[in-house]
């Protein structure tokens, strides 16, 4: 028995409803419903870039304040609110430099937001590389290209550790100097140069070499947000009773290791910090067993359910 089959067989549980698989609706309305999170994610990802570009090139203002200056490494919203990439600031600190208060406050604000939303919400909803990785993955599945080799997804934590060690040794923020993410948003905003080949590199790697290669295995920024994501307040809630274990969600998930039926059933949600809250699993579930919910609500629900189960 494989791990997954073991996971699916639930002892002491009545026979589950017959398995129905996900069917893409024929109507446009139905399709849009399936694509709702995808559309929202692309809208937000593109909007962030457009706001940066508009402010830089056309001087967009709101109430006489520049809307969003800088890039995703560090920026200023409405001319006053500093925002900084906490991982970049962490690397600067690891290189034994103490940044100015603006960068520290900016990093704290961004960190606080993602502590609530879920760290890797950044990956699925803000990071521009996600669009490249998703495109590569879509083509890979369409053309039936299989990974050349398998690497554990935990490799990213080694990349994270290595980033901090190298920052300390080299005296500069090690990942920021090679980051394809930083290169992509910086060059989209400030003008595309030779650095953009790094983005092309990710596309080719994800398409031909390894499924979800960069985002799913190596990206130290993703690892950082995974650690932050452990306290996420918005989570994918799981209703065990209606689930038929068809596995469509697991097939669709860009981070398959986060979707364990056993764990999800036990906690009533996807708990892993590696979950990006992309919502792909939610829209393909034929039984609507998955949904976004607040962690607090999920906890009280599951508590209620277990209480109910024990009394009846």
């Amino acid at each position: 028995m494989t791990e997954k089959q073991k996971d699916m067989a639930v002892p002491g549980k009545s026979v589950r409803a017959e398995i129905r698989h996900f069917q893409m609706p024929d109507t446009l309305g139905g399709k849009l419903r399936v694509w709702r999170f995808l559309i929202a994610r692309r809208f937000i990802q593109v909007s962030i870039l457009v706001l940066f570009m508009g402010t830089l090139h056309y001087g967009w203002t709101l109430f006489n304040q520049l809307v969003l200056t800088g890039n995703m490494s560090s920026s200023r919203l409405f001319g006053v609110i500093p925002l900084s990439d906490p991982f970049a600031v962490l690397q600067v600190i690891a290189s034994l430099q103490w940044p100015h208060m603006d960068a520290l406050i900016g990093a704290a604000i961004v960190l606080a937001v993602y502590l609530l939303l879920g760290g890797r919400v950044f990956c699925a909803w803000a990071c521009p590389v996600n669009m490249v990785a998703d495109l590569a993955n879509w083509l890979r599945e369409k053309w039936g290209i299989r990974s050349m080799f398998i690497v554990p997804s935990k490799t990213r934590y080694w990349a994270l550790l290595l980033t901090l060690i190298l920052s300390f040794i080299l005296g500069v923020a090690a990942f920021e100097w090679v980051s394809p993410i930083a290169i992509m948003h910086r060059e989209l905003i400030y003008g595309i140069g030779l650095g953009f080949i790094a983005v092309l590199g990710i596309f080719i790697f994800d398409l031909l070499v390894m499924a979800r290669g960069w985002c799913g295995h190596f990206c130290p920024l993703g690892a950082f947000w995974s650690v932050v994501g452990r306290t996420a307040q918005i989570r994918v809630a799981f209703d065990d009773a209606s689930c038929t274990r068809c596995g469509d969600c697991v097939k669709e998930c860009p981070e398959p290791s986060v979707l364990s039926f056993k764990e999800a059933a036990q906690h009533g949600m996807v708990r892993s910090g590696e979950c990006t809250n992309c919502g792909k699993c939610i829209v393909v579930c034929p039984e609507n067993s998955l949904s976004f919910n607040l962690r607090a609500c999920i906890r009280s629900n599951s508590a209620l359910r277990s209480e109910h189960g024990s009394t009846s």
């Binding site: 200056t69 890039n71 490494s73 960068a103 500069v172 923020a173 060059e187 595309i192 790094a198």
Partner: peptide, 30 residues
């Protein structure tokens, strides 16, 4: 070590003097 490569100085420069470096430019990337 400190530069976050955000380009806010580039935006602030009224003469478009400053640029952010990319790969193979004369300055370190970003």
């Amino acid at each position: 070590a400190l530069c976050l490569k955000c380009g806010q100085c580039v935006k602030a420069c009224p003469f478009e003097t400053l640029k952010l470096a990319t790969v193979a430019d004369d300055a370190p990337i970003g």
